[in-house]
Design a protein around this nucleic acid. Structure first.
Lengths: 257, 257
DNA sequence: TTGCACTCTCTACACCGTAGAGATATCATC
DNA sequence: GATGATATCTCTACGGTGTAGAGAGTGCAA
């Protein structure tokens, strides 16, 4: 099954939904639902059971209506997911004191993003067709840019740094989320899984064919099991910030882009 | 719809499939198909139309059988996807001369991975429950580790650097793939989409609320449109390599982890 | 030659998103 | 207050998904 695609559909309708600026009809029966309620229920189901559990039938059932009713509020499932995504981005920009200095601020951006994915793992499964320019997305973007404002980086470079951090966190958090979900879905811890898998692999694995992996793999496995995504995230974030620091230093030494 | 989960199911059966070591039955009709043929067809369909097009009915139809026949060869769709993933990883480790020096070698690793995703965009939609320890995955891992062998990094650090690069590329290539797919699916170029979207956004957007975004956004948009994923990838890769270089220098100066 | 294991088709089930018809509720207008 | 227009909701249906299990046919081992 493919990812849920967001950012599709009629732009006018999408903007209305994202920004909550739709005109309310005057005639007809009083609506029993509203967009915010539908979205909140969808987020709750997704958080608890993953995006696969968010079917129109499921959400409608949870709200005491039938599936087709939802289409009076959102044009389709993709648009529902759009709004879900923008709503959870709102958690990133709650009033919070920014740490001093670009490096600590950028680190905080990365950590908040990482934490957001951990709270809402389904975010990983949403493929964006086009940027979702909802209020919280833009607020998030604004906050991220502010982390690197005043560094001497050009606007383009600021944009690119923010994109770099976002891309990295998205890539890195997969490991953490997938490991947690694998355990939940199969009921097997990493260790239990490895106990079943390792003897089978040993029958087919030829160390001569993979000499470096044969050395590093067991060492890494001993210390990190099937992976230690949080440690990998920390390590990678440090490297990434070091790399940005090289560039920031260059800019502050007067070298322009 | 959720991502396709790989790395699930019976470990014995998975290993047999991945490594091609299954015993062939002796009795019964001659099989009309084989795993390699099914996988190749599935990859071809996924490459052309995305992973959503890879239904058991579709693949069976393309092979001239009915859907349930496929279950004699693979236990389920997830396992089919497992094998698909490992097979395309084989493209990463075709005989190729490695550039000299860890930095160039690591850059080549990243580029090859980026290119692989571009050739097989459906890889983005595969969520790994557990590491898929197939022959090509391990070969890929071995090759990646070799890129940073001899740098003075510990085995754990080597593992972490390789993970960092993999995570970054996975996060970064999303932009490129999603942009291409959005255009294909909607028939709208970025420019055409923006022409429809911008006037609507302008009605709801308040520059005072997003001061930094209001400055950087238009500059970035002018130069990069809705995004320039390739440029972001290049920029981010440079930063990342700079960051790893800081660490490598530290190790070569005698500072241990 | 017979029995067993195997391959394949068919049918079915439970699930999915969503179109459209019809019943009902509520408001705007006269 | 009555009527018509608009809106909400339910129901039914369609085309799609992965996969279970029964039955028919194939080919090898004993």
């Amino acid at each position: 099954m493919a990812s849920v695609y967001s950012g599709s559909g009629d732009p006018r309708r999408s903007i209305e939904l994202l920004w909550g600026v739709q005109e309310r009809p005057r005639r007809g029966p009083k609506p029993r639902l509203d967009v915010e309620g539908i979205v909140a229920k969808a987020i709750a189901v997704a958080d608890a059971e993953g995006l696969a559990a968010v079917s129109m039938r499921r959400i409608a059932g949870e709200l005491g209506v039938t599936a087709m009713s939802l289409y009076g509020y959102v044009p389709g499932k993709a648009e529902l997911v759009d709004v879900m995504v923008d709503r959870v981005y709102g958690e990133l920009t709650e009033p919070e004191t920014e740490p001093p200095g670009w490096r600590a601020a950028l680190e905080a951006v990365a950590r908040r993003s990482w934490d957001l994915y951990l709270r809402h793992p389904w975010l990983l499964q949403v493929a964006a067709s086009r940027p979702l320019l909802g209020p919280n997305f833009i607020a998030k973007y604004d906050q991220e840019l502010r982390a690197v404002a005043g560094t001497g980086l050009s606007p383009i470079e600021m944009e690119l740094v923010v994109t770099l951090v976002g891309n990295y966190v998205h890539g890195a958090v997969r490991g953490a989320i997938e490991a947690a979900e694998a355990e939940q879905r199969t009921g097997l811890t990493d260790d239990a899984w490895w106990e079943r898998y390792a003897p089978l692999l040993e029958k087919v694995f030829d160390a001569d064919r993979y000499p470096t992996a044969a050395v590093v793999g067991p060492v890494a496995g001993e210390e990190m099991g099937a992976g230690d995504p949080a440690r990998a995230f920390e390590f990678g974030l440090e490297r990434l910030l070091d790399g940005v620091e090289v560039l920031v230093r260059r800019r502050q030494d007067g070298e322009t882009a």
